[in-house]
């Protein structure tokens, strides 16, 4: 399988801050890649470099076979980019916005195309409404429609479903999958775990560094976490788990402590060290312990904690 996007050692610096640090990534053609990472980890910066909005300070790569540095104009014609912040004109109506985008891309039959798009979005009777007056969810849908109007081969979506209700999010993902089925390559950043699981492949980035890439299962497996799920024996004893978490935090061998509904997830890479650390509380009558399998979220939290520890050890600013 060929890669639609292939970058090597991509770096971007803002002043003293290294926002993206030697990132290498392949996005396979026709697939949906989820792009995850904590706030400020460099997702938006990476996407902007991919579509030529920012010039990389180091490294390079290609998008659809065009060079990122020298053929930005070509790339722009074949990609759709949905910005994190709404970037259509708030003082233009929905219809006017779509018409503008269609004309700018030199698409034929603008009227027709726009009215079809409006029908598909279910926005026909609101087409004269100013885009700025739309609710957050509708703005996102409009933005997606606008950036796919010219049928791009690669779609870069920056947190397209932030602030969108669950039903609309489901529609959104159905649409994204439909586009991928037509052969579009999608790179989509998100903070939602359920959305991550809808992607074919994932990339996880923290502090500007790519920490993991692969399918969800691969990432979980590679994290190699042994995990326990702890419940309080007495469901009314709300403070017990909190106290346990405080007690275990920082113990050698315990790499992950994360509340998970009524349970607490406790895990570690080194199973023996973890069991050693937990032995004093294993027999505590207040808790019920059960072996569990790590979730994607556990894996990410672990990856991030490890990256932070490595960064601190190396003396890098966090």
């Amino acid at each position: 399988m060929t890669a639609a996007i292939r970058v090597r050692d991509l770096s971007k610096r803002f002043g003293a801050r290294l926002a993206v640090d030697a990132l290498s990534l392949d996005v396979p053609r026709g697939r949906i890649m989820g792009f995850l990472g904590p706030n400020g980890s460099g997702k938006t910066t990476t996407l902007r470099m991919l579509c030529g909005l920012l010039t990389p300070d180091g490294g390079g790569g290609s998008c659809l076979g065009y060079d990122l540095r020298t053929q930005a104009a070509r790339i722009k014609r074949h990609i759709g980019y949905m910005t994190q912040k709404f970037s259509l004109y708030e003082d233009l109506t929905i219809q006017e916005n779509l018409e503008f985008i269609a004309r700018v891309h030199g698409l034929g039959g603008v009227r027709m195309l726009v009215s079809e798009t409006l029908a598909r979005l279910g926005l026909q009777d609101r087409r004269r409404q100013l885009a700025g007056q739309l609710s957050g969810g509708w703005k996102q849908r409009l933005a997606l429609a606008a950036c796919t109007l010219h049928r791009p081969q690669v779609l870069l979506l920056d947190e397209p479903t932030a602030g969108v209700d669950p039903a609309a999010r489901r529609d959104f993902w159905d649409e994204i999958h439909a586009l991928a089925a037509e052969g579009m390559t999608v790179l989509v950043s998100t903070h939602y775990m359920d959305e991550a699981e809808r992607c074919h492949v994932l990339a996880y980035i923290a502090y500007g560094k790519l920490l993991a890439a692969g399918s969800a299962q691969e990432i979980i497996d590679r994290a190699g976490l042994t995990l326990y799920s702890v419940h309080a024996a007495d469901p009314a004893d709300g403070g017990a788990l909190g106290a346990l978490a405080a007690q275990l935090r920082g113990c050698p061998g315990v790499d992950v402590i994360a509340p998970f509904g009524n349970a607490l997830h406790v895990g570690g890479v080194d199973a023996r060290a973890l069991d050693g650390a937990l032995s004093p509380v294993f027999d505590d009558a207040r808790f019920r312990w059960a072996a569990s399998s790590a979730s994607l979220e556990d894996a990410f939290i672990h990856l991030m904690a490890r990256a932070r520890a490595a960064g601190t050890a190396a003396g890098a600013p966090s």
Binding site: L53, R77, T83, V104, H105
Partner: peptide, 13 residues
């Protein structure tokens, strides 16, 4: 300032 430049710059304009 309105953020619309980001959208303009990825078009073929």
């Amino acid at each position: 300032e309105r953020g619309t430049l980001e959208n303009i710059l990825v078009t073929p304009i």
